[in-house]
């Protein structure tokens, strides 16, 4: 494709990204550095600040979260679940906006989402993280990494690999326009198990790869190896998802009362 077409494609993905995802990296960074103009996020760093935070932060999912008597770990886990379910809906809308996606075999659309959504979730989670913690509840709160590490087993391990990934990923210095094309590429991976018709998927991904290469060349002229570095991150993402699925198996075995949302059950079943 011509360079102008590739720029149009990259711009289109950025517009979809802004349309379907509630918080951009730019917004998250502004909140974390106190430049957003809003009030600073409420910092949750121990059990008492968590209790205070639950009073002052407006969570969207009040109805589906266990009551206050429930263990902290279970409440946090259920909030993570709810946010993941919302994210799957957002990512599905984003995927449908990728030119050519809705013309793919419907079974293949399901497969691409089944395998892609968590890689996208963990890519975008990096935007909300720094080495010390992560923004929660659309930027109203900031939960520290140390607090999460202090939760009981196995919940203390839930986010640590994602922090490790986030710190390295964030060091690439990508902006929202770069991330938008990258996650479209992640979704259109032609090597997902069980795909029926790989060729059109690879063709779409190829256009996006060209759009990303050009985007990075123009947007980061001083980082000539950024494209190659970014593609290597796709391997790390698969590893993180595999570990995440293993942790969920552990949680389901050890935590009798833990309910997994039906949408997440669908996605995790026979995943890896």
């Amino acid at each position: 494709p011509e360079a102008a077409d590739l720029r149009t494609l990259a711009r289109h993905m950025f517009e979809s990204y802004c349309k379907y995802f509630p918080i951009t990296k730019a917004k998250a960074r502004a909140i974390m550095t106190g430049k957003a103009g809003d009030k600073s996020p409420f910092v949750i760093y121990d059990m008492s600040s968590l209790k205070a935070g639950e009073e002052c932060i407006t969570f969207r999912q009040q109805a589906s979260v266990p009551p206050h008597g429930t263990a902290v770990e279970i409440r946090i886990f259920q909030r993570c679940q709810f946010r993941s379910v919302e994210a799957v809906r957002e990512i599905t809308e984003f995927a449908k906006s990728i030119p050519g996606f809705v013309s793919l075999d419907l079974n293949d659309q399901v497969t691409l989402l089944k395998y892609g959504v968590h890689e996208v979730i963990f890519t975008m989670l990096a935007s909300l993280m720094n080495k010390d913690g992560l923004l929660i509840a659309a930027g109203q709160g900031f939960m520290t990494r140390e607090f999460i590490k202090s939760l009981r087993e196995p919940f203390c391990h839930m986010l640590e690999p994602k922090f490790g990934f986030a710190v390295k990923f964030n060091s690439l210095g990508l902006d929202d326009g770069d991330i938008a094309v990258f996650i479209a590429i992640v979704i259109l991976s032609g090597d997902r198990p069980g795909l029926v018709n790989v060729k059109p998927i690879e063709d779409l991904q190829d256009s996006l790869l060209q759009a990303l290469a050009l985007q990075l060349k123009l947007n980061h002229p001083d980082s000539p190896h950024l494209f190659a570095k970014l593609l290597q991150k796709m391997t790390d993402l698969r590893q993180i998802v595999t570990e995440h699925v293993q942790l969920l198996h552990t949680i389901r075995k050890t935590e009798g009362e833990m309910n997994l949302h039906p949408l997440l059950q669908e996605i995790y079943k026979d995943l890896y």
Partner: peptide, 20 residues
Amino acid sequence: LKEKHKILHRLLQDSTSVDL
């Protein structure tokens, strides 16, 4: 496959109609 992924399938068809 779409039979085993009813919610994902419905999200792909019309996400606004799906009550999660």
